[in-house]
């Protein structure tokens, strides 16, 4: 059974991979700059931020939940981390506190959902507004600019010729994979996503797992935020606004089901890359801003359609 499931999962993603390759080939015909090493690294670096958030989002959606607060958590933790750096505390401590804050806010989401039975959509929608509001009050609407150079390495550093954010994102994907597919915890998360009541009866601590995935989602949002402000050398209270849509789009394009229990981080990775490639392609080809969103919507729709067709054949 395990084996057939695996093949099925691969087959499902097959359509998506085909769509991705068609996209790459098309753009490479239209722009000779597209398939160059610097541009590939550029695309990977740009996808790292959405990628890291999307791994957390994948786990959340696997439990049949949703996290609308990721962009706001990113924003709040980013401005607080930037402010901590300005206060002169050691860099590793600022990073640690920022990540911890992201984890805690996510955990509060989890508590609202498990203890107070608030639907994930509503609970995280509330947190989205609250965290963004706090980011604005905390900064009084002004950006915090000029960050510690040794902190900025997290966003601007290179190991060999590979940007550090790409390495961090790759690590997050790999750990996400190990956690979901190679540990008992992952199995439990899939099980509770498939059928929460059944999982509860079989003795899985459902509430604890749900709190955990939201906390991880918050943690990863904070991590993504640090890379982003490292790159920008500045944290604006508005930073990360709308990132929830990109993350959710990547997860869903990547074949993870909204009803939970079905999907993987590798599908999400393809979803993240598709979105980054669309954005990159539109800029390379200098598509007018009026058509940009139309093109984006059509491309995503076509990718999903191919995905569905491949799924049916399987």
């Amino acid at each position: 059974m395990k084996k057939s499931e695996k093949i099925n999962g691969y087959g499902e993603r097959f359509g998506l991979i085909i769509a991705f390759f068609i996209m790459i080939i098309t753009i490479s015909f239209l722009s000779d700059r597209f398939l160059t090493l610097p541009n590939i690294l550029n695309i990977l670096r740009q996808s790292s931020i959405n990628g890291i958030i999307a791994v957390g989002m994948t786990m959340v959606i696997l439990t049949a939940g949703i996290d609308l607060s990721v962009g706001s958590i990113l924003g709040l933790t980013a401005v607080i981390t930037a402010d901590l750096l300005h206060s002169g505390i050691p860099v590793f401590l600022a990073i640690l506190l920022g990540l911890l804050l992201g984890f805690c806010i996510g955990f509060v989401n989890g508590l609202l959902i498990t203890k107070f039975k608030i639907p994930p959509f509503i609970a995280t929608l509330g947190m989205m507004t609250l965290a963004r509001g706090l980011a604005f009050t905390y900064t009084q609407g002004k950006p915090i600019t000029g960050l510690n150079e040794s902190f900025r390495v997290i966003g601007t550093g290179m190991i060999g010729s590979i940007p550090l954010p790409v390495i961090i994102a790759a690590l997050v994907f790999f750990l996400g994979y190990l956690f979901l597919k190679r540990s008992r915890h992952g199995e439990n998360i899939y099980a509770l996503g498939n059928n929460e009541t059944a999982a509860e009866f079989s003795g899985i601590p459902v509430k604890r797992y749900i709190s955990l995935v939201y906390a991880l989602s918050g943690f990863l949002s904070a991590l993504a935020g640090m890379i982003l402000i490292g790159r920008l050398d500045s944290a604006q209270p508005i930073i990360g606004q709308g990132y929830e849509f990109d993350a959710i789009a990547a997860v869903v394009v990547g074949g993870t089901s909204f009803t939970g229990g079905h999907g993987s981080v590798w599908g999400t990775l393809i979803g993240v890359l598709i979105i980054a490639v669309i954005n990159n392609g539109l800029n390379l080809l200098d598509v007018s801003s009026f058509y940009e969103q139309v093109v984006k919507g059509v491309v995503i729709a076509i990718a999903l359609l191919l995905h569905r067709l491949a799924q049916k054949k399987n």
Binding site: S31, R33, T36, P38, N39, N42, R45, Q46, P143, L228, R231, L232, S234, Q236, I238, I239, G240, Q241, N279, N280, L282, N283, L284, D286, S288, S289, E292
Partner: peptide, 21 residues
């Protein structure tokens, strides 16, 4: 001539792409 929606993070990524082109 590209939009970056008045946003700093988008200014970064859009101009990165333009630099490639």
């Amino acid at each position: 001539r590209q939009t970056a929606n008045f946003n700093r993070a988008e200014g970064l990524s859009v101009f990165e792409n333009i630099l490639q082109a």
